[in-house]
Design a protein around this nucleic acid. Structure first.
Length: 525
DNA sequence: AGGCTACTCAGCCTGGATAA
DNA sequence: TTATCCAGGCTGAGTAGCCT
């Protein structure tokens, strides 16, 4: 209680009041301290016997309160210390993630300042040691914190302190987690009401949907932009940047920048959902113990149906990757996959899909190098189909040379190349690169002659070509001119008869060449 | 004063689609 | 097969306003 309050209650005289003010004894505890030290107020200027009695009286009257206050002060200090050091692992984790998310939602300036102050260690122990338990702690002394940041950071610290105290009261994990969810959602995103259905179901998809629609992850414009520019929903219309720009009244370029900005932040924002404890296996038969998770239309339908959502397979996979961040790696480029119109495949593979691969397993192989290699092979001109054994090919991309792991990786990689490149292994597990150049006329003629098996007239060869390839659009003249020596043909005589060069060595009694050639040969023999 | 953020603009590049 | 158009990407320069 302050001296002004005492004076207002008319418990002390004007003289005593002035004595207190003049000597900076502004509260009862100040009076008490002074009295405790000097045992009398008479040493103060203007203080006579009457004022002294009055002030001593006040000290005695409010003694209980003072000692109470002191007790509270002691209680406040010591317990917090012991509370923090006695937290269980779950409690610490809960608080850690709370601090992390709260820090992340600060303004850039405050965030940078506070994480610099904490040496980028946002764990509760460090936070408490540097801020809550340091008596001399003063926000304004933190580098880069100015008067604008102070109120924001004050709220930030008090939220964390409140949360810490609340968490310390209970050890029931389920309760803790529900409490954290509610705290987190309400405080982090400033959302006053969270439907209990979301907290109870603990569905990460419902939560994502809710937070997106509440503009919790991004502000209103940003949310509009990512909803239209990213492939978040099933069967959604693709908008051009110009269309979106018109809706949010910004330039096309700015929309692109915001989209990039949000996309870069999206997975970080989604980390929030890992606070939930969703039972993916029971609900959707997603086995989080397996080495590879594939979301097909069946699973996505199931998810959308039970959550009343309409997420695309790609975004569902993305959400899952955030949720399962500790045990799974998201293989695939998120810009490629989530931005339908995005195309940046300068010298690299442009991904169609995401793949959720168990973390350990994913670290064994360089998926990027693998896809880039296949991609560059496909982009090259392939004059002739070729193939090699897939398993030994894969071993080139192992990061730790752990050959034993290949059996586990093979089905994953096979699936990956099927959907990324539409190329398939044959029965002997060979990877086949099919010819990608147009077949030329002479090749058709060659094939036809091989079928005919003996030197034939152009007309016959042409008919054979048409018989073998009814859809091939060509003419007799084109076939005739294509049959050059360099392409492996030999003309025989002057009657438009052609054979294959290779027959000269394979067949007896076969000698190709023009009449002149034949005469020259006979003469030299 | 100087840093940071949000934003715009111009210029140039690329790949895909389509017309010639 | 080649030329052209178009959407979209990247980059650097620059502005305004706010904050420390």
């Amino acid at each position: 209680m302050t001296i002004d309050e005492i004076y207002k209650k008319e418990e002390i005289s004007v003289r005593s009041y002035h004595i207190c003010k003049y000597n900076k004894l502004n509260s009862i505890s100040d009076l008490k301290k002074y009295y405790h030290l000097k045992k009398s107020f008479e040493g103060l200027q203007n203080c006579g016997r009457k004022s002294n009695e009055e002030l001593i009286n006040i000290c005695n009257r409010y003694q209980d309160e003072v000692t109470e206050n002191r007790e509270i002060e002691i209680k406040k200090e010591n317990p917090l210390k012991s509370i923090i050091f006695n937290l269980t692992r779950v409690q610490r984790e809960v608080i850690n993630s709370f601090i992390f998310v709260n820090t992340d939602s600060l303004s850039t300036r405050s965030k940078n300042a506070i994480s610099m102050f904490l040496n980028h260690n946002l764990k509760v122990k460090n936070f408490a040691e540097k801020i809550l338990l340091t008596e001399s702690f003063d926000l304004e002394n933190i580098k880069n914190v100015g008067y604008k940041c102070v109120p924001e950071l004050k709220v930030y610290i008090s939220i964390i302190k409140d949360f810490l105290l609340e968490v310390s009261h209970t050890k029931d994990e389920r309760y803790l987690i529900a409490l954290k969810n509610k705290f987190l959602i309400q405080r982090t995103f400033d959302i006053p009401f969270v439907p209990s259905q979301i907290l109870e179901s603990e569905s990460i998809f419902q939560l994502t949907d809710f937070l997106l629609n509440q503009n919790a992850f991004f502000d209103e414009n940003q949310t509009i932009i990512i909803k239209k520019a990213l492939k978040l929903y099933d069967n959604q219309r693709e908008f051009t940047l110009d269309e979106i720009a018109e809706q949010v009244d910004l330039s096309r370029e700015r929309v692109r920048q915001i989209r990039k900005l949000c996309l870069d932040k999206l997975s970080n924002k989604l980390l929030f959902i890992s606070n939930f404890n969703d039972d993916l296996f029971q609900k959707y038969s997603i086995d989080t113990e397996s080495s590879y998770i594939e979301i097909d239309t069946d699973v996505s339908d199931k998810i959308n149906k039970s959550n009343n959502s309409n997420f695309s397979i790609e975004f569902i996979t993305f959400i899952l990757s955030a949720y399962l961040k500790d045990s799974f790696t998201l293989v695939g480029n998120y810009e490629d996959v989530l931005q339908p119109k995005y195309f940046n495949s300068r010298n690299r593979h442009n991904w169609n899909n995401f793949y959720l691969v168990e973390k350990q397993l994913a670290s064994e192989i360089d998926f990027t190098a693998l896809t880039n290699d296949i991609s560059s092979r496909i982009c090259d001109r392939i004059e002739e189909s070729y193939s090699f054994h897939f398993k030994s090919y894969l071993s080139k991309f192992l990061t730790k040379g752990n050959i034993d792991i290949l059996d586990l990786l093979l089905p994953i990689c096979e699936n990956l190349i099927n959907s990324e490149f539409e190329i398939y292994l044959d029965l002997d597990e060979n990877l086949i690169f099919k010819r990608n150049t147009n077949r030329q006329a002479h090749e058709y003629a060659y094939e036809a002659l091989e079928h005919l098996g003996r030197p034939s007239k152009v007309k016959v060869i042409f008919e054979k070509v048409i018989e073998l390839h009814p859809n091939y659009n060509t003419e007799e003249a084109k076939i005739r001119v294509s049959m050059k020596r360099k392409n492996g043909f030999v003309p025989i005589g002057r009657k438009s008869v052609f054979g294959l060069k290779k027959w000269e060595s394979e067949l007896e009694n076969f000698k190709g060449g023009t009449i002149r050639d034949i005469v020259v040969r006979l003469q030299t023999n």
